[in-house]
Design a protein around this nucleic acid. Structure first.
Lengths: 223, 223
DNA sequence: AATGAATGTAATCGATGATTACATGATTGT
DNA sequence: ACAATCATGTAATCATCGATTACATTCATT
């Protein structure tokens, strides 16, 4: 009547106001709390029960909204992917350069930056065991959109004769493998084995990205 | 008395022969069974209890040999790493080419090949959450030896003027990021999102590797 | 208001990692 | 040969987790 959505009791964000049997927004609250758990304690800290606890609800309550843990994690991944995509889109919008390879590099940097700042969220969207990627249209769509953006940039680069290799699909897989490998080396804690200190990680990843992109383009005039 | 090793009851490989209270070789048996569990059911199928079950021993027995699960998994990782290294060494020994970049590519192929055939074992040695990498001299040493081999090859390549970039450490990180990314994309099941069928994976990975290595070398003469 | 669907609770199950007290048997010193 | 000692395995138990079932409560619609 007074609230916008007729199907909801009302916002209980403050936590203690209204009558407490029906939460009113449990589904989204659980996703949010799961994201928080992931941030603070890593992937292993995310449990259905812990999310329920944080939401102030019984251990069985989440199963009214998600048939199993994987479905909850998939919803978490969808939210994380939404943020990931938004940040990539922002970086691309801020890259004023006309050079398509520079724009691809900007995407790569945004990718690595987000993974560095949200390691567990990155892990969640990358996993195919804790989430049902195939079963989520949202995840598939967002992923395909990133691919399409890069494909367009590669096509432009090819038309300008910048590329050393004609197989753009292969280039794209290579590019993704490189940034995915870097990001996973980071979240998996491999850099200490490479004598790369934490403070150097960002710079190292940027230089590796440059090295790779330079290797893609046809012989540059000079340097 | 009759057996070779005086400190052991004797081989109980067959399973039912001798007196059964003391297993005689539990530690190694547990590692072996854990490897088997990993092969057959993935990382999540590996549990201390399951390994104990397969070894025909009580759920608490493993904790006499490993203080916690992570220590068991670290021992598993050490055995997996040993096999991994052996296969890389074999591939390198079989590569007759004198070209250091071809030798590096051979290492990359062996790396990817092993990961493709032993996805869960690869996952275990790559993880830094289920194992204590830093706490294992064996793991650190084997990893450092691979790095040293590649460093030597890169140095040779640099001396022959083959490299486009002088920072060999950076090249090595990039190379590792690429193969690690490819291997993890495989293990994590990303290739379906890239329209790469299972049968094409091996070839695709090889081509991506070539694309990368070609990008490292100074402008080739012709095609 | 009454009814039925949506949503949350309570109780319970089986599996897991881990700990403690106890049992067994092999090793070793005399 | 024998007994002390230590390594190794067992039994029992705990807390946590994912999951299910039966029941309670609230909301929306009639």
């Amino acid at each position: 009547m007074s609230t916008v959505k007729p199907t909801r009791t009302g916002d209980r964000e403050a936590g203690e106001g209204g009558s407490a049997y029906h939460h009113g927004n449990l589904r989204e609250e659980l996703v949010e709390q799961a994201l928080k758990l992931a941030e603070e304690g890593g992937l292993s800290a995310v449990s259905v029960r812990a999310a329920a606890r944080l939401a102030g609800v019984s251990p069985a309550a989440p199963f009214r909204h998600f048939p199993d843990k994987m479905t909850l994690m998939t919803a978490v991944a969808e939210e994380a992917m939404r943020r990931f995509r938004a940040e990539i889109a922002l970086a691309l919008a801020q890259e004023v350069a006309d050079d398509p390879m520079l724009r691809i590099r900007a995407i790569g940097r945004a990718y690595l930056d987000w993974a560095r700042r949200n390691p567990t969220h990155f892990e969640i969207i990358s996993s195919r065991r804790s989430i049902d990627f195939e079963g989520s249209p949202s995840l598939g769509r967002e992923n395909a959109e990133i691919q399409a953006q890069i494909e367009a940039l590669l096509l432009e680069a090819a038309q300008r004769g910048l590329l050393r290799c004609n197989d753009r699909h292969l280039i794209q897989i290579a590019a993704r493998a490189l940034v995915y490998g870097l990001a996973r080396m980071l979240v998996d804690g491999h850099f200490p084995s490479w004598q790369v200190a934490d403070a150097e990680i960002e710079g190292t990843m940027a230089k590796v990205l440059d090295l790779f992109v330079d290797g893609l383009v046809k012989e540059r005039a000079a340097s």
